[in-house]
């Protein structure tokens, strides 16, 4: 009996002569491809966290929480083998190096901190760098699911305007 190991050939043969070709196929199952996954905010689109500073509190040091509160963050990985799942680690970083801006005026991301619902992503503050580690070495087998609420310090007088900026979160396996 002819042994054919090329799956594509078998597949085409089956399409042409269904039921008339006999073949044996030997599969060596290695597992699904390695994958990393990260989500921050809504499942689709890019979520915007808005800090609206009331006129009466502008610059007086009253912390201003962002809306929405409790922004979801989920991180997970999949390795090709169980051994890799046990041995590999991942890191989550945040790039906040480009400050929020309104025209030529800027607010550094160091003025924004966050609280954590359950500590998977520890509470912290953006440091304004391109690769701030917000979740250190974590075993690949473990998934992270947390909710973060962001807070603007509101402790300085800044020119009026709508300041916008973007933080990029990255999961990577060293």
């Amino acid at each position: 009996m002819q042994r054919i190991t090329l799956a594509a050939v078998i597949f085409l043969a089956l399409l042409v002569y269904p039921g008339t070709v006999l073949a044996e196929i030997t599969f060596t199952f290695k597992g699904a491809p390695a994958e990393v996954r990260i989500r921050v905010g809504a499942v689709s689109g890019v979520t915007t966290v808005v800090h609206a500073v009331p006129l009466s509190l502008s610059g007086d040091g009253t912390p201003i929480s962002g809306a929405p509160a409790g922004v979801a963050i989920e991180v997970s990985t999949r390795r090709e083998t169980s051994r890799e799942m046990n041995q590999a680690y991942y890191i989550v970083t945040a790039d906040s190096s480009v400050p929020l801006s309104s025209g030529l005026d800027t607010i550094p991301f160091t003025k924004i901190s966050w609280t954590s619902q359950d500590g998977d992503i520890p509470a912290g503050r953006f440091d304004g760098t391109s690769a701030q580690v917000i979740r250190d070495l974590t075993r690949a087998r473990w998934s992270i699911s947390d909710r973060l609420t962001f807070i603007y310090d509101n402790d300085q007088a800044v020119p009026a305007g709508t300041y916008t900026g973007t933080v990029t979160y990255t999961i990577w396996i060293p």
Binding site: V50, V158, T164
Partner: peptide, 13 residues
């Protein structure tokens, strides 16, 4: 490695 974005906005009157 994979990356996602989160936008921030601060409104000052």
């Amino acid at each position: 490695t994979a990356s996602v974005e989160l936008n921030f906005q601060v409104t000052i009157a």
